[in-house]
Design a protein around this nucleic acid. Structure first.
Lengths: 135, 135, 135, 135
DNA sequence: GTGGTCTAGACCACT
DNA sequence: GTGGTCTAGACCACC
């Protein structure tokens, strides 16, 4: 549910990205139900002690990505699932994300088994390890 | 060997980061041997057709993190391996990188198998799939 | 070419949208070539006498849409064409755009022939009337 | 007839606009006859489960643009037709709406035939395809 | 009350 | 020089 969203100031990840990530994971794990209303831009900004524009940016990204839908004057809501991107685009973005992980891991001098273990651990933690595609 | 370093101009990754990654990766895969000399800043800049400052920045980062060592008046060389981060720090950073991948993937509505496959494919492509930690 | 971008203050369309539209049309009509560099955020903002954030917003939208690619510290460029959206998403967005046109037209009490004529006239003006899909 | 008015909550279009459009469209297609009475603000608000202010806003817009007329103490009725905009103004606004459609379409890499087909399909769906201007 | 757009200006990262 | 993030605050449109 909405109360879950938290941010870490001073993290490497931009604030708006932290929010995007948490909403996406929340939807994937079922913490956010389809049709559920999210906290208003102003309310969330006040709770997290950050600027409303930053929330608006995060929500806007999620709307463009098809995760949320906004109804002017009413609020923003979890959108019904739909596939927004072409297969090519999905592969392209997935590859970029994988590259970012591996690049970071090589920098940390992790072994490949450490990477695999970390990925599996997190998937299990999120209850995703047996999830089907485009469930 | 040094001749391996290449850059992709249209890539999302910053130029200096592409160089850093390739050197680190070369060390991890054994393409660069300990004590081996790298091309000079000026020589590499000329070959890659980019600004020497960008090379200098990359080499500087690698020296600072202990992957390279620069010997005054001689050039830069692959340094004996040593780790920079504590185990806790490594695990923390690895977890963040994993989360970024998973968030992107669920946003794309990828199955967990697609994620696993994409990671393994990339590891294999880079010649990392059977390497041990810190060689 | 870049000098083409103009805006109309006080128009119903938001400024950032006017920029997005002009870049998209410029790419479609060949006024912008693939790989061509666009004016920098600051330069365009200065020329159009609007805030740089507004340009950045427009460029950002176009990057997400796959029309532009930005290279940090270098500039933004026309990206090679690729299909970013799934067929469903394309149909969905096309339908929304058509609905907006018809809604406006009904409000203006236009006949259907006026709509058809206006569409064809504009396509011809842009030199698109015989263009193939995903050229 | 009035019973036709419906709204879609998840739609991109604002609620008041959906009502305005449907009344205008009903007039254009002949579903509403001149002099016909519309449901009262309160009655329609109750049926559609939305705020009466929203209905009032929609009716107000329609009265202001001459599509409806309100008779004190009796209700609102379909007004005899009259045009609001000059021909130039209509053409100008129509051209802007057409440009928005074309920009969106080229962004989606649609062919011109896809655009034409989508427009015709929607006109047919709305029962407009063979109607004359201003009936 | 809600979200959307725009301005002004700061600070950071990259070339 | 370039783009990217964030803050602060204004004003508008919709419910």
């Amino acid at each position: 549910m909405a109360g879950d969203i938290e941010i870490i100031l001073g993290s490497a990840a931009p604030l708006y990205r932290q929010i995007v990530d948490q909403v996406r994971l929340g939807v994937a794990t079922g913490n956010f139900a389809i049709g559920e209303q999210l906290p208003s831009v102003r309310a969330l900004a006040e709770r997290l002690l950050i600027n409303p524009n930053t929330i608006a940016r995060a929500y806007g990204d999620l709307v463009r990505e098809g995760v949320l839908e906004s109804r002017h004057g009413q609020g923003v809501f979890i959108a019904p699932r739909r596939s927004v991107f072409s297969d090519d685009e999905r592969q392209r973005r997935l590859a970029l994300a994988v590259d970012a992980l591996i690049s970071e891991s090589v920098g940390l001098q992790c072994s490949v088994d450490e990477i695999r273990t970390a990925v599996e651990a997190r998937l299990k933690e999120l209850g995703l390890s047996n999830r089907k595609k485009r469930g």
